Computed example of a mutant assay.
Amino acid sequence: MNQVLAITELQLPVSSQGVFVATGASLDAYAALSKIIGEASASILIVDPYMDFAAVTEVAELAPNGVMVHLLSDAGTVKPTLKPAAEKWVEQYGAARPLEVRLTEARLLHDRLIITDAQVAWILTQSLKDFAKRSPATIQKADKDLAIMKVKAFDTIWNGAALLV
């Protein structure tokens, strides 16, 4: 049943409510993230307190050329592989595929989300590095009112975070 639901949801337009990803369905997770991130035209903010190199090599890479990618993680839980991956990204792509990484103070973040074009917010039930690996996961589109609140709150958090790359 869960597998049928996941397949059906992946076939719906990305503007629908969300996606259920069955345990171990890494291709389904990749496809769902690709649809969401691929719709961005100006910017993407990815928030995950446990971010690692996969945020760059598997998620940021889904952004269209010229779209600014912002990665926000937590200084207390970020994985050490994030910084070198982001530095190599910036070295390779520069302004053609802009990327900036910031860290909040330790233990400030808990949410995991993606915000596209400072308007649409997608809530993730697990960290990107482990998304649907050990248990089912969901990517849920926030309604308009919640998205406005998320955009405002995470803009403030982003502006107060320390630049990593």
Rank of each mutant, 00 (worst) to 15 (best):
I115M: 06
S16Q: 15
A6T: 05
Y93E: 01
D74S: 07
L82Q: 04
V120I: 14
P98Q: 01
L33S: 02
D143R: 12
Q126R: 08
E58F: 03
V59S: 01
W89P: 00
L109I: 09
G24H: 08
I148E: 13
E9R: 13
P13S: 09
P64C: 05
L103R: 10
D48I: 03
S16V: 10
G160L: 14
I46S: 04
R112E: 03
G38A: 04
V47K: 08
P80V: 07
E105A: 15
V151Y: 07
F154R: 08
F131K: 10
L82V: 03
R97G: 00
V120Q: 14
T104I: 13
L72C: 04
L124S: 05
I44G: 06
E61Y: 04
N65V: 13
D145Q: 14
K83W: 00
T81A: 10
I114S: 06
V14I: 08
R97H: 09
T8I: 10
Q17H: 11
V101N: 05
K141N: 09
V165I: 09
V21D: 06
A75W: 00
A106R: 14
S34H: 13
A118R: 09
K35E: 14
V47W: 06
G160V: 09
D74R: 12
Y30M: 10
I46A: 12
A75C: 02
